[in-house]
Design a protein around this nucleic acid. Structure first.
Length: 426
DNA sequence: TCTGGGGTCCTAGGACCC
DNA sequence: TCTGGGGTCCTAGGACCC
């Protein structure tokens, strides 16, 4: 058997300190200053400018723990504004698609792109052109790594992050060993906390050592994913680019509360309102859910009031995306798992077994279902037009005392068409 | 005393990613 | 006082069947 083996060129484009860069776009005064963006509920630090990193502020660090450094160094702090970041992300991806319409949007701030049709000589300058175009058109700085596999392009990107040009290609490097040797095993894509521990125990401390370990050993002692990672380090592509955007399989809405919740009614409100969010989300993607899970828990960090965590899943008789039905099921579960006497910190709802809506009609659908579907659609339309939660269910509450903290919001809303300034043509 | 074997399907939990 | 949220995939083990 013979086959043609051609070398792929995979680029990973990654936005630098993405959330911070988004905030900076609308606030030039903080360009050269240390900036951090906080997670929901102003809990943790999830994006840092280089200046903030240099101060020793760690990724994922609780905000209250870093507060001293932050105040002392006048670090600018922002609550997260996901509609802004989502909007800018779409702009970046749209710009990227001009270079190759087939990209894999891997996360809000990253995309893989196949650049195999360019020659080895061109590749680095193509990378630089992509980078400068994105910067010019969207204002977002990026780093670009190019290599023969996704895993290697992650490493290339890692290196590019530290370079002035922001672009690194490993394509025409014959022997990658000296480079891989400098990459810490925990920095390899697909190697998390547990695997790092395991590899270190077996004398593997860097990417080169993993690359040189036999597949048989890796598969036996770990799993297929790990052996794929090793193959990719050797320059053999095992993880395909996922161009076609596939439909999601689950949908989660969960939040920590702004303050601890003790009474059932408030918890019910929160859960009901998460249900409305989740069902609207799956409706907008024309999906229906087979089952629903509710979970509640007290803080895992403060157990002095006792710790309680529980969850339960039930199946719907017929897959659904109807808010009313979903809230009803959620409340039933909640009644079952709620226990008095605890200070709840977080609750969440998960819709699973998602499938396409059009397969939904069956023996049991009725005229009533049709009416409910129409009602849901008009609620969604109204909320889209007049702002989120214009129409809601009474069970979701009005005052939402449990709502999350968001004390440092920049309040920029590019996604809300109606909050844009109006200019009248004369 | 001695208590099949193998296949499939489902689920919960763990590990990973951003 | 204060510790995020949303995904995917894999695996082990149980249930069930013949």
């Amino acid at each position: 058997m013979s086959y043609i083996r051609y070398t792929k060129k995979i680029a990973l484009i990654d936005c630098n300190s993405f959330y911070v860069s988004c905030e900076r776009l609308f606030n030039p005064k903080i360009r050269k200053k240390p900036v951090v963006v906080l997670s929901n509920n102003d809990g943790c630090i999830i994006s840092r400018s280089n200046e903030a990193k240099a101060l020793g502020i760690k990724m994922g660090e609780p905000y209250f723990k870093a507060k001293n450094i932050i105040i002392k160094n006048n670090v600018q702090v922002f609550s997260s504004n996901y509609s802004l970041y989502g909007d800018l992300s779409r702009r970046v991806m749209r710009t990227l698609k001009r270079f190759n319409s087939e990209i894999e949007v891997y996360s809000i701030d990253e995309a893989f792109m196949d650049l195999s049709n360019f020659t080895d000589d061109e590749i680095e300058s193509v990378g630089k052109e992509i980078r400068s175009t994105i910067l010019q058109w969207t204002g977002i700085p990026t780093s670009i790594g190019i290599a023969k596999t996704k895993t290697l392009s992650k490493i290339a990107n890692h290196i590019a992050k530290k370079k002035q040009s922001g672009v690194t290609s490993l394509i025409d490097i014959e022997n990658l060993d000296p480079i891989l040797e400098k990459i810490n095993i925990s920095d390899v894509w697909g190697v998390g906390k547990q695997l790092t521990k395991f590899y270190q125990k077996n004398g593997i401390y860097n990417a080169k050592q993993l690359k040189n370990k036999s597949n048989a050993w890796i598969k036996k002692c770990s799993n297929v994913l790990s052996s794929r990672t090793a193959m990719e380090l050797r320059g053999i592509p095992c993880i395909d680019l996922e161009i076609a955007s596939s439909k999601r399989k689950s949908c989660v809405v969960s939040r920590s509360f702004g303050k601890r919740v003790e009474n059932f009614e408030e918890l019910k409100e929160a859960v009901a309102s998460y249900c409305l969010n989740a069902s609207e989300k799956i409706r907008s993607e024309s999906l229906v859910a087979k089952s629903i899970t509710i979970f509640i828990r007290t803080s895992p960090f403060q157990r002095n009031f006792g710790y309680y965590s529980n969850s339960k899943t039930i199946d719907f008789p017929i897959a659904t995306n109807n808010s009313i039905e979903i809230v009803k099921a959620a409340v039933l579960i909640l009644e079952d798992i709620f226990k008095h006497g605890y200070r709840y910190q977080k609750a969440g709802i998960m819709l699973t077994g998602l499938s396409n809506e059009n397969g939904k009609k069956n023996l049991f659908s009725s005229e009533k279902d049709e009416k409910i579907n129409k009602l849901m659609k008009s609620i969604d339309k109204t909320n889209y037009r007049y702002g989120k939660s214009t129409l809601s269910l009474a069970s979701a509450g009005i005052y939402k005392k449990w709502n999350m903290r968001r004390e440092h919001s920049s309040k920029i809303d590019t996604a809300d068409f109606y909050s844009l300034p109006k200019i009248k043509a004369t």
